[in-house]
């Protein structure tokens, strides 16, 4: 974890509201785990005041990639940045996904911009593992397939792929995996994660979820991003103890 100013190397619009930005890292030997994030200052003044947390989308040839939707003023400003401008980054932060385990097939379940951490996860996945991706979006224009493999798509309005949500789509395909040892990696809106969590706990499926929460510092000092432990009393912090948790470890 360190604070550094990095230059924007590229910025492109992937879909109507989704952007991909890359920055040249000044340390090619940086160790980054898929699922970790950076807390990024999108302006050099007090508006917006706080940093914005973004999952690492990819890290290749010392370039860091972040995928984001325009959601508010901060992400709008980020989308308007130009190549060569500098951003102040703090990271990598958080724990990241655990790529080890007794499985032969990694199943990615992503809702909307929840797809952001998976291109890098797929890149770092050991070669002997299969990867299958389930991707859900509101409609066809919001489907962002960037960096994913073997994709099944669902849309809320049925404009592409399965008509419904991505957890339903995954459940409808579960029989395809009966002879496989699977591990699920999921990221997306909280209602999606809740519905998935219920299913994987019932069926005893190994599953890690990447959660989100408003946060200020991103490294544990502000205590602003609690998430309730599933057993015992008290909270974990999304920024420091997460953002990735085993599906049975937290109450969503």
């Amino acid at each position: 974890m360190k604070q550094s100013k990095l230059k924007i190397d590229s910025i492109e619009k992937l879909e109507s509201n989704t952007f991909l930005i890359s920055l040249k890292s000044n340390q090619s030997n940086e160790v980054i785990t898929p699922g970790q994030f950076y807390n990024i200052k999108v302006s050099d003044n007090d508006f917006p005041l706080l940093r914005r947390p973004f999952s690492i989308c990819d890290f290749i040839n010392d370039r860091l990639y972040f995928m984001f939707d325009i959601h508010g003023e901060g992400t709008k400003m980020l989308s308007q940045k130009r190549i060569g401008e500098e951003l102040d980054l703090l990271g990598p932060l958080g724990n990241g996904f655990d790529l080890s385990g007794d499985f032969d097939t990694a199943i990615i379940i992503a809702g909307g911009i929840g797809a952001a951490p998976f291109p890098y996860l797929i890149r770092k996945m050991p070669e002997n593992k299969n990867v299958v991706s389930f991707l859900g979006a509101k409609s066809k224009s919001a489907v962002v397939k960037y960096g994913l493999k073997k994709i099944f798509i669902s849309t809320d309005d049925g404009s592409e792929g399965f008509h419904g949500n991505v957890v339903h789509l995954f459940k409808s395909k579960i029989l395809d995996f009966v002879d496989k040892k699977i591990k699920i990696y999921a990221c997306g809106p909280t209602p999606m994660l809740i519905s998935l969590q219920e299913f994987v706990i019932q069926n005893k499926i190994d599953c890690q979820i990447s959660t989100e929460c408003s946060m200020a510092c991103g490294f544990g000092i502000c205590q602003g991003c609690p998430i309730e432990k599933s057993s015992g009393d008290g909270y974990l912090l999304v920024c420091k103890d997460g953002p990735v948790f085993n599906a049975n470890a937290v109450k969503l």
Binding site: D46, F47, P48, L49, L50, C213, S214, M215, A216, C222, Q223, G224, C225, P226, I227, E228, D233, G234, Y235
Partner: peptide, 14 residues
């Protein structure tokens, strides 16, 4: 253990 989430929100310059 502190308060349940949300614990923080950004405001104008604060």
């Amino acid at each position: 253990k502190g308060n349940p989430p949300q614990r923080i929100v950004e405001t104008s310059s604060g």
